[in-house]
Amino acid sequence: MDVTVGTFNLNNLFSRFNFRAEIQEILPTGEDGRDDGRDDGRLTSSYEFKDPKEFRIRTYKGRLVKGITPEEQEMLARRIIGMDLDVLAVQEVEDIDTLRFFVARRLRKAYPFLSLIEGNDPRLIDLAVLSKFPMGAVTSWQHTPHPELPGERVFSRDLLEVEILDPRDPDRHLLTVFNNHLKSQFVDHRQDPVQGKIDNDHLRTLQAEAIARILAARTRPDGRFVLLGDMNDTPEAPTLAALAAPTPQVALEEALAHPVETRPPKPDDPPPPASGSWTHRFKESHRPAEYELFDQIWLSRSLTSRLKSSHIDRRTRHAGDGSDHDPAWVVLEF
Protein backbone atom coordinates (compact mmCIF):
# COMPACT_ATOMS: atom_id res chain seq x y z
CA MET A 1 0.00 0.00 0.00
CA ASP A 2 1.32 3.43 -0.96
CA VAL A 3 0.64 6.29 1.45
CA THR A 4 1.06 9.93 0.42
CA VAL A 5 1.89 12.54 3.07
CA GLY A 6 2.38 16.23 2.35
CA THR A 7 2.53 19.80 3.62
CA PHE A 8 1.00 23.05 2.35
CA ASN A 9 1.00 26.59 3.75
CA LEU A 10 -2.49 27.87 2.85
CA ASN A 11 -1.54 31.55 3.21
CA ASN A 12 -4.18 33.07 5.49
CA LEU A 13 -7.15 30.77 5.04
CA PHE A 14 -9.52 32.85 7.14
CA SER A 15 -13.27 32.86 7.58
CA ARG A 16 -15.53 34.98 5.42
CA PHE A 17 -15.89 37.54 8.18
CA ASN A 18 -13.38 40.13 9.26
CA PHE A 19 -14.70 41.26 12.63
CA ARG A 20 -15.47 40.08 16.11
CA ALA A 21 -18.72 41.17 17.69
CA GLU A 22 -20.91 40.61 20.71
CA ILE A 23 -24.68 40.73 20.34
CA GLN A 24 -26.35 41.48 23.66
CA GLU A 25 -29.97 41.03 22.57
CA ILE A 26 -32.08 40.75 19.42
CA LEU A 27 -35.73 41.62 19.80
CA PRO A 28 -38.57 40.04 17.79
CA THR A 29 -40.09 42.46 15.29
CA GLY A 30 -43.34 42.96 13.46
CA GLU A 31 -43.71 43.23 9.73
CA ASP A 32 -43.01 46.98 9.93
CA GLY A 33 -39.64 46.32 11.58
CA ARG A 34 -40.67 47.70 14.98
CA ASP A 35 -40.74 45.81 18.24
CA ASP A 36 -44.24 44.31 18.40
CA GLY A 37 -43.97 43.30 22.04
CA ARG A 38 -44.25 39.59 21.33
CA ASP A 39 -41.71 36.94 22.20
CA ASP A 40 -42.48 34.29 19.61
CA GLY A 41 -38.87 33.49 18.69
CA ARG A 42 -38.83 35.57 15.55
CA LEU A 43 -35.64 37.60 15.22
CA THR A 44 -34.70 40.70 13.31
CA SER A 45 -33.29 39.96 9.90
CA SER A 46 -30.31 42.25 10.52
CA TYR A 47 -28.40 43.78 13.40
CA GLU A 48 -26.60 47.11 13.29
CA PHE A 49 -23.46 47.55 15.38
CA LYS A 50 -23.48 51.11 16.66
CA ASP A 51 -21.61 50.85 19.95
CA PRO A 52 -17.80 50.56 19.43
CA LYS A 53 -17.68 48.32 22.51
CA GLU A 54 -19.71 45.67 20.66
CA PHE A 55 -17.28 45.02 17.82
CA ARG A 56 -13.60 44.94 17.04
CA ILE A 57 -11.98 44.94 13.62
CA ARG A 58 -9.34 42.23 13.41
CA THR A 59 -5.90 43.82 13.09
CA TYR A 60 -2.30 42.73 13.52
CA LYS A 61 0.41 45.33 14.22
CA GLY A 62 -1.91 48.07 13.09
CA ARG A 63 -2.94 46.44 9.83
CA LEU A 64 -6.27 44.93 8.88
CA VAL A 65 -6.10 41.14 8.81
CA LYS A 66 -7.37 39.93 5.47
CA GLY A 67 -7.85 36.41 4.22
CA ILE A 68 -7.32 35.21 0.70
CA THR A 69 -10.09 35.78 -1.83
CA PRO A 70 -12.65 33.13 -2.90
CA GLU A 71 -10.78 32.88 -6.21
CA GLU A 72 -7.54 32.13 -4.37
CA GLN A 73 -9.34 29.57 -2.23
CA GLU A 74 -10.46 27.85 -5.42
CA MET A 75 -6.84 27.79 -6.60
CA LEU A 76 -5.78 26.15 -3.34
CA ALA A 77 -8.60 23.65 -3.62
CA ARG A 78 -7.68 22.68 -7.18
CA ARG A 79 -4.11 22.07 -6.13
CA ILE A 80 -5.12 19.98 -3.12
CA ILE A 81 -7.63 17.94 -5.11
CA GLY A 82 -5.06 17.45 -7.85
CA MET A 83 -2.47 16.10 -5.39
CA ASP A 84 -5.04 13.72 -3.88
CA LEU A 85 -2.93 13.03 -0.79
CA ASP A 86 -3.85 10.64 1.99
CA VAL A 87 -2.56 12.94 4.75
CA LEU A 88 -2.00 16.68 4.40
CA ALA A 89 -0.49 18.93 7.07
CA VAL A 90 -1.48 22.55 6.55
CA GLN A 91 -0.51 25.89 8.09
CA GLU A 92 -2.22 29.29 8.38
CA VAL A 93 -5.84 28.28 8.95
CA GLU A 94 -7.96 30.48 11.20
CA ASP A 95 -10.05 27.89 13.04
CA ILE A 96 -11.71 24.50 12.78
CA ASP A 97 -14.96 25.90 11.39
CA THR A 98 -13.07 27.64 8.59
CA LEU A 99 -11.29 24.38 7.83
CA ARG A 100 -14.52 22.36 7.85
CA PHE A 101 -16.19 24.86 5.54
CA PHE A 102 -13.20 24.76 3.16
CA VAL A 103 -13.14 20.95 3.08
CA ALA A 104 -16.89 20.62 2.61
CA ARG A 105 -17.35 23.43 0.12
CA ARG A 106 -14.06 23.53 -1.79
CA LEU A 107 -12.58 20.05 -1.38
CA ARG A 108 -15.83 18.13 -1.96
CA LYS A 109 -15.56 16.47 1.46
CA ALA A 110 -12.42 14.63 0.36
CA TYR A 111 -11.03 14.53 3.93
CA PRO A 112 -13.37 13.04 6.54
CA PHE A 113 -10.83 13.39 9.38
CA LEU A 114 -9.67 16.85 10.47
CA SER A 115 -7.73 18.15 13.43
CA LEU A 116 -6.99 21.76 14.40
CA ILE A 117 -6.12 23.15 17.83
CA GLU A 118 -6.00 26.89 18.45
CA GLY A 119 -2.37 27.92 18.88
CA ASN A 120 -0.27 30.87 20.00
CA ASP A 121 -0.19 33.11 16.93
CA PRO A 122 -1.80 36.56 17.42
CA ARG A 123 -2.68 36.59 13.72
CA LEU A 124 -4.95 33.56 14.37
CA ILE A 125 -3.06 31.29 11.97
CA ASP A 126 -3.16 27.71 13.22
CA LEU A 127 -1.87 24.28 12.25
CA ALA A 128 -4.13 21.50 11.04
CA VAL A 129 -4.02 17.99 9.61
CA LEU A 130 -6.42 16.62 7.00
CA SER A 131 -6.60 12.88 6.54
CA LYS A 132 -8.44 10.25 4.54
CA PHE A 133 -7.30 7.73 7.16
CA PRO A 134 -8.65 7.59 10.73
CA MET A 135 -6.81 9.57 13.37
CA GLY A 136 -5.79 8.47 16.84
CA ALA A 137 -4.39 10.71 19.56
CA VAL A 138 -3.82 14.39 18.84
CA THR A 139 -1.39 16.41 20.96
CA SER A 140 -0.63 20.13 21.01
CA TRP A 141 2.81 21.21 22.21
CA GLN A 142 2.02 24.93 22.13
CA HIS A 143 2.73 25.42 25.85
CA THR A 144 6.25 23.95 25.63
CA PRO A 145 8.99 26.12 27.16
CA HIS A 146 12.71 26.07 26.37
CA PRO A 147 15.39 25.88 29.10
CA GLU A 148 16.59 29.27 27.92
CA LEU A 149 13.03 30.66 28.22
CA PRO A 150 11.63 28.68 31.18
CA GLY A 151 8.58 30.90 31.73
CA GLU A 152 7.56 31.35 28.09
CA ARG A 153 6.05 29.34 25.26
CA VAL A 154 8.79 28.66 22.73
CA PHE A 155 6.54 27.96 19.73
CA SER A 156 5.17 30.95 17.83
CA ARG A 157 2.22 28.78 16.75
CA ASP A 158 2.40 25.16 17.83
CA LEU A 159 3.85 21.73 17.23
CA LEU A 160 0.86 19.52 16.41
CA GLU A 161 1.31 15.77 16.85
CA VAL A 162 -1.28 13.54 15.14
CA GLU A 163 -1.44 9.75 15.06
CA ILE A 164 -2.56 8.31 11.72
CA LEU A 165 -4.19 4.87 11.89
CA ASP A 166 -4.08 2.12 9.31
CA PRO A 167 -7.31 2.23 7.22
CA ARG A 168 -7.14 -1.55 6.86
CA ASP A 169 -7.04 -2.00 10.64
CA PRO A 170 -8.04 1.08 12.71
CA ASP A 171 -6.54 -0.52 15.82
CA ARG A 172 -3.12 -0.41 14.19
CA HIS A 173 -0.92 2.68 14.27
CA LEU A 174 0.42 3.55 10.81
CA LEU A 175 2.59 6.62 11.44
CA THR A 176 2.71 9.87 13.41
CA VAL A 177 2.75 13.32 11.84
CA PHE A 178 4.42 16.29 13.56
CA ASN A 179 3.20 19.49 11.91
CA ASN A 180 5.22 22.71 12.33
CA HIS A 181 5.24 26.40 11.48
CA LEU A 182 8.43 27.93 12.83
CA LYS A 183 9.19 31.59 13.46
CA SER A 184 8.89 33.76 10.35
CA GLN A 185 11.81 35.63 8.81
CA PHE A 186 9.63 38.74 8.60
CA VAL A 187 10.99 41.82 10.42
CA ASP A 188 8.54 44.62 11.14
CA HIS A 189 9.50 48.00 9.67
CA ARG A 190 9.45 49.46 13.17
CA GLN A 191 12.26 47.14 14.24
CA ASP A 192 15.96 47.36 13.55
CA PRO A 193 16.37 44.99 10.55
CA VAL A 194 19.67 43.52 11.73
CA GLN A 195 18.58 42.91 15.30
CA GLY A 196 15.20 41.70 14.08
CA LYS A 197 16.81 38.99 11.97
CA ILE A 198 19.06 37.96 14.84
CA ASP A 199 16.07 37.65 17.17
CA ASN A 200 14.04 35.66 14.61
CA ASP A 201 16.90 33.27 13.89
CA HIS A 202 17.52 32.75 17.58
CA LEU A 203 13.89 31.90 18.29
CA ARG A 204 13.77 29.54 15.31
CA THR A 205 16.87 27.82 16.72
CA LEU A 206 15.21 27.36 20.10
CA GLN A 207 12.09 26.00 18.42
CA ALA A 208 14.11 23.42 16.45
CA GLU A 209 15.86 22.37 19.65
CA ALA A 210 12.52 21.99 21.41
CA ILE A 211 11.22 19.83 18.55
CA ALA A 212 14.30 17.60 18.76
CA ARG A 213 13.76 17.08 22.50
CA ILE A 214 10.06 16.31 22.00
CA LEU A 215 10.84 13.78 19.27
CA ALA A 216 13.44 12.09 21.49
CA ALA A 217 10.90 11.81 24.31
CA ARG A 218 7.90 10.77 22.20
CA THR A 219 9.37 8.37 19.63
CA ARG A 220 11.41 5.19 19.45
CA PRO A 221 14.52 4.70 17.28
CA ASP A 222 12.45 2.41 15.04
CA GLY A 223 9.36 4.65 15.18
CA ARG A 224 7.49 5.66 12.04
CA PHE A 225 7.00 9.41 12.07
CA VAL A 226 7.17 12.39 9.74
CA LEU A 227 8.26 15.86 10.79
CA LEU A 228 6.98 18.38 8.26
CA GLY A 229 5.65 21.89 7.75
CA ASP A 230 6.78 25.44 7.08
CA MET A 231 10.20 25.73 8.73
CA ASN A 232 10.85 29.27 7.48
CA ASP A 233 14.48 28.36 6.81
CA THR A 234 16.48 25.93 4.68
CA PRO A 235 17.25 22.36 5.83
CA GLU A 236 20.98 23.14 6.08
CA ALA A 237 20.50 26.43 7.97
CA PRO A 238 22.23 26.72 11.38
CA THR A 239 18.83 27.44 12.93
CA LEU A 240 17.66 23.90 12.06
CA ALA A 241 20.88 22.15 13.08
CA ALA A 242 19.08 20.35 15.92
CA LEU A 243 16.90 18.56 13.35
CA ALA A 244 19.69 17.68 10.96
CA ALA A 245 22.07 16.30 13.61
CA PRO A 246 21.37 12.58 14.22
CA THR A 247 21.26 11.21 17.76
CA PRO A 248 20.96 7.61 18.99
CA GLN A 249 17.28 8.27 19.60
CA VAL A 250 16.34 10.35 16.54
CA ALA A 251 17.86 10.38 13.05
CA LEU A 252 15.96 12.40 10.45
CA GLU A 253 16.43 12.67 6.70
CA GLU A 254 14.93 15.51 4.67
CA ALA A 255 13.15 13.94 1.68
CA LEU A 256 12.91 16.82 -0.82
CA ALA A 257 16.48 17.07 -2.08
CA HIS A 258 15.52 15.96 -5.61
CA PRO A 259 11.74 16.12 -5.94
CA VAL A 260 9.63 15.43 -9.00
CA GLU A 261 7.98 18.69 -10.12
CA THR A 262 4.45 18.59 -11.47
CA ARG A 263 5.41 21.15 -14.14
CA PRO A 264 8.47 23.20 -15.05
CA PRO A 265 8.91 26.40 -13.04
CA LYS A 266 8.34 29.77 -14.62
CA PRO A 267 11.47 31.31 -16.17
CA ASP A 268 13.23 33.79 -13.95
CA ASP A 269 16.49 35.73 -13.65
CA PRO A 270 18.33 34.17 -11.96
CA PRO A 271 16.58 30.85 -12.69
CA PRO A 272 15.19 28.69 -9.89
CA PRO A 273 17.40 25.88 -8.54
CA ALA A 274 17.88 23.16 -11.12
CA SER A 275 17.25 20.52 -8.46
CA GLY A 276 13.68 21.74 -8.06
CA SER A 277 14.23 21.72 -4.31
CA TRP A 278 12.34 24.88 -3.40
CA THR A 279 8.83 25.76 -2.25
CA HIS A 280 9.06 29.48 -1.49
CA ARG A 281 9.97 32.47 -3.70
CA PHE A 282 10.82 35.85 -2.20
CA LYS A 283 11.42 38.91 -4.38
CA GLU A 284 12.40 42.28 -2.96
CA SER A 285 12.10 45.33 -5.18
CA HIS A 286 15.15 45.82 -7.45
CA ARG A 287 16.73 42.60 -6.17
CA PRO A 288 16.90 39.10 -7.67
CA ALA A 289 14.40 36.52 -6.50
CA GLU A 290 15.37 34.05 -3.81
CA TYR A 291 14.20 30.43 -3.99
CA GLU A 292 14.25 28.44 -0.75
CA LEU A 293 13.02 25.07 0.52
CA PHE A 294 11.05 26.38 3.50
CA ASP A 295 8.42 23.62 3.40
CA GLN A 296 10.13 20.40 4.40
CA ILE A 297 9.44 16.74 5.05
CA TRP A 298 11.81 14.97 7.45
CA LEU A 299 11.47 11.20 7.70
CA SER A 300 12.37 9.00 10.64
CA ARG A 301 14.99 6.32 10.17
CA SER A 302 12.46 3.54 9.66
CA LEU A 303 10.59 5.50 6.97
CA THR A 304 13.58 6.39 4.79
CA SER A 305 13.66 2.86 3.38
CA ARG A 306 9.95 3.16 2.55
CA LEU A 307 10.36 6.35 0.51
CA LYS A 308 9.39 5.75 -3.12
CA SER A 309 9.41 9.35 -4.38
CA SER A 310 9.02 12.99 -3.38
CA HIS A 311 7.08 15.69 -5.22
CA ILE A 312 6.40 19.43 -5.39
CA ASP A 313 3.37 20.93 -7.11
CA ARG A 314 4.88 23.81 -9.02
CA ARG A 315 3.09 27.15 -9.20
CA THR A 316 2.07 28.69 -12.53
CA ARG A 317 2.71 32.29 -11.41
CA HIS A 318 5.68 33.87 -9.64
CA ALA A 319 3.39 35.15 -6.90
CA GLY A 320 1.95 31.68 -6.42
CA ASP A 321 -1.42 30.07 -7.08
CA GLY A 322 -3.41 30.98 -3.98
CA SER A 323 -0.33 30.78 -1.76
CA ASP A 324 3.25 32.02 -1.79
CA HIS A 325 4.30 28.46 -0.92
CA ASP A 326 4.22 25.38 -3.13
CA PRO A 327 2.95 22.15 -1.54
CA ALA A 328 5.23 19.14 -1.24
CA TRP A 329 4.64 15.48 -0.52
CA VAL A 330 6.22 12.04 -0.33
CA VAL A 331 5.05 8.60 -1.37
CA LEU A 332 5.73 5.93 1.26
CA GLU A 333 5.35 2.18 0.73
CA PHE A 334 3.77 0.11 3.48
Rank of each mutant, 00 (worst) to 15 (best):
M1Y: 06
D2W: 10
V3E: 04
V3Y: 14
V3M: 13
F8D: 08
N9G: 01
N12R: 14
L13F: 08
R16H: 12
R20V: 14
I23M: 08
Q24W: 04
G30W: 07
R38N: 06
R38A: 13
D40A: 12
F49C: 08
K53S: 13
I57V: 15
I57H: 12
Y60T: 04
Y60M: 06
L64N: 11
L64M: 13
L64V: 13
G67A: 11
I68T: 10
T69I: 06
Q73R: 15
E74Y: 03
M75F: 09
L76V: 13
R79S: 12
I80T: 06
M83A: 15
D84N: 15
D86Y: 03
E92A: 04
R100A: 11
F102E: 05
A104Q: 12
A110C: 04
P112M: 04
L114C: 13
N120W: 06
R123G: 10
I125T: 07
A128V: 02
V129E: 04
L130V: 07
L130K: 10
V138I: 15
S140Y: 03
W141F: 15
E148S: 14
G151W: 11
S156D: 07
D158H: 08
E161I: 01
P170W: 02
P170E: 07
F178K: 03
F178N: 02
F178I: 00
N180S: 09
H181W: 12
L182K: 10
K183H: 06
S184I: 12
Q185S: 04
H189Q: 09
R190D: 11
R190C: 03
D192N: 15
D192M: 06
D199Y: 07
R204A: 03
T205C: 09
L206R: 13
A208D: 00
A212C: 01
R213I: 02
R213Q: 14
I214V: 15
L215V: 11
L215H: 09
R218T: 09
R220I: 00
P221G: 10
G223W: 10
F225K: 04
V226W: 05
L228D: 02
G229F: 03
G229N: 05
D233V: 10
D233S: 11
P246K: 09
T247V: 01
T247A: 00
P248K: 05
E254C: 12
V260K: 12
T262V: 02
T262C: 01
P264H: 01
P264Y: 01
P265W: 02
D268P: 00
D269R: 14
D269H: 08
P270F: 08
P270R: 08
P272Y: 05
P272H: 04
P272S: 14
A274D: 13
G276E: 00
T279G: 01
T279L: 01
F282P: 00
E284Q: 09
R287H: 10
P288Y: 07
A289H: 01
F294K: 08
F294R: 05
D295I: 05
R301M: 05
S302D: 15
L307R: 14
S310E: 03
H318V: 10
G322H: 12
S323M: 09
D326H: 03
V331H: 13
V331R: 15
L332T: 07
F334I: 06
